[in-house]
C-alpha cells in the first residue's frame, strides 16, 4: 500500500514537470482520436516500447551507472518465450509472458553473477559478448527456426487471450498501459532503498561498500529488474509483429539503441528514457522513411543519429535532461 502510494506520488518534482506529465498523459490517451494514421500509430507504439526498454535499462545503467550493452538478449528471451509457447503449445499470451519474465530474470541471475565481477570497459564488452553468444545460438538452432525466425499463427478473429487484434489501436493502448506500469514502478524504484544504494554505487563504490551495501548483489538485483522490463517489451514485440527472428530481437544494434535512448534523454532521471525515445524513435523513423527511401542516401539517417550521440557524449554526458536542468539552474 505504502509502495503504491510512493509509486503514484510525483510531488517531489517541480510544478512544470508535473504539468508536463499531465499534458503528456492526456496526449497519450487521446492520441488515437487526434493524430492517428497507421504510420504515426506505429511510431507511437515504437516510442512507448522503447521508453519501456529505456526505463528498464535505466535501473542498472542509469541509476547504477553500469554500461550495460546486452539488453537485446532479454528482448529475445521475452519474445521467443511468447512466440514458441504459442506455436508449440498454443499457450495464451497472458501465461507465456509471465513465464518469459521468469526465464529472463532467472537467466539474468545466472549471467549477472559472473558478469558483475567486472567493471567499466571489461563489463561493457562482456555484456555485448553474452548477448552475441545467445544470438549466435538462436541463429543456428533449427528447433527455434534458426536465422529464419518464427511466425506466430494468425487467428481469424480478434482474441484477447492471444493478444491478436485487427487494429493497431488496441496494441497502442496495451503498450501504453505497460508504459504506465513501468513509469509508476520506476517512480517507486528511484525512491526505494535499492534506488538509493545504486546511486551511491555509481557515485563511489568504495564508500558504498563501507556503508554496508553488497555492491555485487545490488547490481545483480537491478540487472534482473532491467531484464524483466525488457522481456515484457520483447513479449509485446512477438504478438505485435507476429514474426520474430534473431536479427530483429537480439541484434547488437538493438542493445545499443536501448542504452542510447536512456543515455541521450538523461540517465538516472525518471524522464530521461522517455525524452530519449521521444527524440530518437521519430527521428529514426522519419529520417529512415524520408532519407533512407531515397536512392543514394542510405546511411545518412544513421550518420545523423551517430553524430548526435557523439555530440552529446562529448558536450553533455548527462543527456537532454542534463541540458534542461542546466538551463533551469542558471535561471535560479
Amino acid at each position: 500500500m505504502e509502495k503504491l502510494k510512493d509509486a503514484l506520488n510525483f510531488s517531489d518534482f517541480s510544478k512544470a514537470e508535473r504539468i508536463g506529465l499531465i499534458i503528456f498523459s492526456v496526449f497519450l490517451l487521446t492520441f488515437p482520436w487526434i493524430g492517428a494514421g497507421s504510420f504515426t500509430t506505429t511510431v507511437m507504439i515504437q516510442f512507448l516500447l522503447f521508453s519501456l526498454f529505456g526505463m528498464g535499462w535505466n535501473t542498472i545503467g542509469g541509476y547504477g551507472g553500469q554500461v550495460e550493452l546486452g539488453k537485446a538478449q532479454y528482448v529475445g528471451i521475452g519474445s521467443y518465450t511468447v512466440a514458441l509457447m504459442m506455436v508449440w503449445w498454443k499457450v495464451p499470451f497472458w501465461v507465456s509472458m509471465p513465464i518469459g519474465i521468469l526465464i529472463a530474470v532467472g537467466y539474468s541471475f545466472i549471467i549477472g553473477y559472473p558478469l558483475f565481477r567486472l567493471k567499466g570497459h571489461y563489463f561493457a564488452i562482456a555484456t555485448i559478448c553474452t548477448s552475441l553468444v545467445l544470438k549466435d545460438i538462436f541463429d543456428n538452432w533449427n528447433l527455434v527456426g534458426a536465422a529464419k525466425g518464427i511466425e506466430l499463427p494468425i487467428h481469424d478473429h480478434p482474441d484477447f487471450l492471444y493478444m491478436q487484434f485487427k487494429s493497431d489501436t488496441y496494441y497502442y493502448y496495451f503498450i501504453m498501459a505497460l508504459f504506465y506500469i513501468g513509469l509508476f514502478y520506476m517512480n517507486w524504484f528511484r525512491k526505494s532503498k535499492l534506488g538509493y544504494q545504486l546511486r551511491m554505487i555509481k557515485d563511489d563504490e568504495n564508500a558504498a561498500e563501507s556503508l554496508g551495501i553488497d555492491i555485487r548483489w545490488c547490481k545483480i538485483k537491478a540487472y534482473s529488474i532491467a531484464s524483466a522490463f525488457v522481456a515484457v517489451g520483447g513479449g509485446f514485440m512477438a504478438v505485435y509483429n507476429l514474426y520474430i527472428d534473431p536479427a530483429s530481437t537480439m541484434e547488437l544494434s538493438l542493445s545499443i539503441k536501448i542504452a542510447l535512448m536512456a543515455m541521450l534523454g538523461g540517465a538516472a532521471s525518471l524522464w530521461g528514457p522517455i525524452i530519449g525515445a521521444a527524440f530518437l524513435v521519430p527521428l529514426d523513423r522519419f529520417l529512415g522513411s524520408w532519407l533512407g527511401g531515397q536512392k543514394g542516401l542510405t546511411g545518412i539517417d544513421f550518420m545523423i543519429y551517430a553524430g548526435l550521440i557523439m555530440i552529446v557524449s562529448a558536450y553533455q554526458p548527462r543527456g537532454i535532461w542534463g541540458i534542461i536542468e542546466q538551463f533551469r539552474k542558471r535561471g535560479h
Binding site: V67, M263, G299, I300, F302, A306, M310, S313
Partner: peptide, 24 residues
C-alpha cells in the same frame, strides 16, 4: 573531460558514424 560512460558511448557513436558513412 567527461565520465567513463560518456567515453564508451562516444567511441560507440564514432563507430556507428563511420559504419554508416561507409554505407553512404
Amino acid at each position: 573531460r567527461g565520465p567513463a560512460i560518456a567515453q564508451l558511448f562516444g567511441t560507440f557513436g564514432l563507430m556507428l558514424f563511420l559504419q554508416y558513412f561507409a554505407m553512404f
